[in-house]
């Protein structure tokens, strides 16, 4: 029983990091109304950035945030401004720019395979870092320290994003744009700049997730695909565009993944996650917290 509890807690912790990664995705979707298929790849970029930052400077893994955060924001901002925005402008009259989804898959393929070309297929991890394999004992349970920090990072990031959206002028502009792009632009908001910012922010959040993962997770070129599909499932579970939904959805997946193997082979739990996703899609497509849109 105690093992189950231990697994459940570790599952929630790990799941909150999934949720953190998905938070970036849901943020971008909320504003641009486009699924960013390159999101996992952006996470991969963030992980490599954190990995190299730690390896080259020898600093504490979490200090990498100082470099990774602005780097990822700039990367996301530029990606949207240079690659995605022209398509939005060209398809201004199209209600649902599928072309944009497609372009993000192109970005996905380029980033993942560039990662493969540049860094090679090998799994990398930071061997000697103060967090690696570190556990705290709570009674008979062992709780992973880096996952616990990841959990905290997820909560803090979600809270900061929420505060930004609710309390700042820029955040209000972002919300206005997400509600009605045309109305927002009539109010003097430049929607494309908001898109850039939202994309940069979503990418930066992926960077935070990358920094949280690097101390205990392997870095490899296709790590993004793993998270990509998890993130998709999480945002649908939680409701596309919902911050709280992303965290909760992530935790659900995390718990299934860590508790499941007690009862079945680990790969079966993966199948259960997909089953859950499809179940939601059929029965409650708007997710746990999603708004029911009149699409």
């Amino acid at each position: 029983m105690i093992y189950l509890l231990e697994d459940a807690i570790n599952g929630i912790l790990m799941g909150s990091i999934y949720g953190l990664a998905a938070l970036g995705l849901t943020l971008i979707f909320g504003v641009l109304k486009v699924i960013n298929f390159a999101h996992g790849s952006l996470l991969m970029v963030g992980m490599y950035a954190a990995y190299w930052a730690v390896l080259l400077t020898g600093a504490h893994p979490y200090l990498a945030l100082v470099i990774v955060l602005p780097l990822m924001f700039a990367f996301g901002y530029l990606l949207q401004a240079v690659v995605i925005q022209p398509i939005f402008k060209a398809e201004r009259e199209v209600r649902e720019p599928i072309t944009v989804i497609i372009v993000t898959t192109g970005v996905w393929y380029i980033l993942d395979n560039l990662g493969l070309l540049v860094f090679g297929p090998q799994y990398r991890n930071i061997q000697d870092n103060p967090l690696r394999g570190k556990m705290i004992e709570a009674g008979e349970m062992l709780i992973s320290v880096p996952k616990l920090w990841g959990f905290c990072a997820a909560l803090v990031t979600a809270a900061l994003v929420w505060l930004f959206l609710q309390k700042t002028r820029m955040g209000r502009a972002v919300r206005a744009t997400s509600l009605d792009r045309d109305a927002a632009s009539l109010q003097g908001i430049n929607p494309y700049r908001i898109y850039n910012i939202a994309f940069g922010l979503g990418t930066a959040v992926a960077g935070v997730a990358g920094v949280a993962l690097v101390p205990f997770y392997n870095v490899f070129p296709t790590v993004g695909v793993l998270f990509d599909i998890k993130c998709f499932i999480i945002v649908v579970l939680g409701g596309l565009g919902s911050i709280g939904g992303a965290l909760l959805g992530g935790m659900i997946i995390g718990v299934i993944e860590s508790v499941g193997p007690q009862f079945m082979t680990a790969t079966w739990t993966e199948a259960i996650v997909y089953g859950l996703f499809l179940g939601f899609l059929f029965l409650r497509p708007s997710g746990l917290f999603g708004v029911k849109y009149d699409w």
Partner: peptide, 23 residues
């Protein structure tokens, strides 16, 4: 629903099916 859901559903279904067959 919005097209994004369909794209996601098809990916998840295909991957889910592959994982199941592997098991």
């Amino acid at each position: 629903m919005r097209g994004a859901y369909f794209a996601l559903a098809t990916i998840a279904f295909a991957e889910g099916l592959r994982v199941m067959v592997e098991n």
